[in-house]
Amino acid sequence: MKKWRILETIEESGAKQMAIDEAMLIARINNLVPNTLRFFTWKPSAITIGFFQDLEQEINLNKAKDLKVDVIRRYSGGGAVFHEDELTYSLVVSEKDLSLNILDSYKYLCQGVIKGLENLGIEAEFKPINDILVNNKKISGNAQTRKEGIILQHGTILLSVNVEKMFSLLKVSNEKLKGKMIASVKEGVTSIKNELSSSDLDMKYLEKVFRQGFSKTLNVDFEEDVLSEKEKDIAQELERDKYLSVDWNYKQKYNNRFYGKN
């Protein structure tokens, strides 16, 4: 069986988590590390936006400040996501090792989450492009980006959902629609706690079932490891210079058109 790396689960700020994900991607591009899975949680809660989104258009920034919710732009594409009571996973994988066509990787990599949910007794299915549903309700959203033949995929596994808090933080263009949207999201989203009718989840147990889910569906053995020194250095630099910076998080809309002159 192929051997991949699994890293220790950490609870950290969104800036640090996003910096670690990109550092893992860079290290994998340079062939310094094997394919890798890790799980993590967010402290404080955070909203992330997709690479091309406009922070001020997507997020009620005053509210985020009041509620001490971090805001961070991701390196991956897609939309705005509120991260609070969830288990998040990241996978960094070489396309070569998957031998799939360009569209099948989402479905293939998401099978690990689906299998993990099944281990918990929750029947879930993949919904293209990148969602996982339980009885037609979303329980996991996933985002990807690629560079030099390496895929970074990260995704949420919802433990619980606070729709009111989420909508107080995310901007809805039409205030009148807000009530309707809250109602429809409540209808359309579920969580592990909701499905299991339990508020008491053991995180170590959850990690184990999802790790098994990925191991089984990807047909790999995970070897426990830590970030390499090189990854730590890259992550530290990215956290400080990129993911904590106003330029990256806020000003993208002003310089979105171009990568600047060196």
């Binding site: 997709g50 091309f52 991956s76």
Partner: peptide, 22 residues
């Protein structure tokens, strides 16, 4: 712009894909 081999020169998002070109 001066660019070095391996540096990102373009980032793109399509309906079903997102990526950065080196």
């Amino acid at each position: 712009q001066k660019i070095k081999k391996g540096e990102t020169y373009s980032s793109l998002e399509a309906i079903k894909w997102s990526g950065h070109l080196s």
